[in-house]
Design a protein around this nucleic acid. Structure first.
Lengths: 121, 121
DNA sequence: TGGGATACCTGTAACCGTGAGGCATGGAGG
DNA sequence: CCTCCATGCCTCACGGTTACAGGTATCCCA
């Protein structure tokens, strides 16, 4: 969970971010979510079930998601929904992602060396 | 090194990417590089020496970087430079970063659900 | 004399994601 | 009828990367 680290958790917290974002758009069950990630990233990203399911369990136990079991044609589905608390987490997480992505992209653009920002010390 | 994984190596390969990019702009020594990362990301990212030095060693042994020892006022510096091969790696890595970042940002924008791309199967 | 900045290094631990499994149901095809 | 594949859930072991806390040595300034 990265309790106060020097860097935000976004150099590997991408799956969690995507889960929150996609589930906020629409409640889904795990298997569905795995495929939704593939779809919505245009086949660029693909996280296996072995990555997603444990994450869903953790997010639920944190109170970020709620789970509801469903029976559909003899098959069971566990549908997840983002809680109010989860929406807050998503907002923070998305903001941090943009912050980090902007930083990296900035460096990649390269032209802008050593910019000074007057606000800090 | 993520030899053909389902996902590109960019959900955690950021330090390597920044090292390559910054060293391509200008050769630097380790200690300097650590601070350059802080600077050039506007204090958003900070990787400790314990992260950077081992990476430099690995990149050197891969042939991505070359090291040259220098004596400056009784202190030793190891200046790193990107090889031709390294420039190739940087280009690929940067492209992959943009690819991934675009995917995540796309999902975050959210409005665009389930877009179909006619090119693929 | 002490401390802080410079400058290098290593090792341990934690974390995350991968990939390969295991289980069960339902439907399609031979 | 039997088999295979897609669905749908799950767990575990492994590997790679990063974090953090060390350790060494020099130099400069107070």
């Amino acid at each position: 969970m990265a309790n106060r680290r020097t860097n935000p958790d976004f150099l590997n917290g991408v799956p969690e971010l995507l889960i929150l974002q996609l589930l906020e758009q629409r409640p889904m069950y795990g298997y569905e979510l795995v495929q939704a990630i593939v779809r919505s990233t245009g086949e660029r990203l693909e996280f296996g079930e072995g990555c997603i399911y444990p994450l869903l369990h953790r997010l639920e136990s944190e109170g970020t998601l709620t789970a509801r079991r469903q029976q559909v044609g003899g098959r069971e589905r566990v549908v997840y929904r983002v809680t109010r608390k989860g929406k807050g987490k998503l907002a923070e997480a998305a903001a941090r992602w943009r912050h980090v992505a902007a930083a990296v992209t900035m460096v990649l653009q390269g032209g802008i060396h050593e910019q000074r920002q007057p606000g800090i010390a």
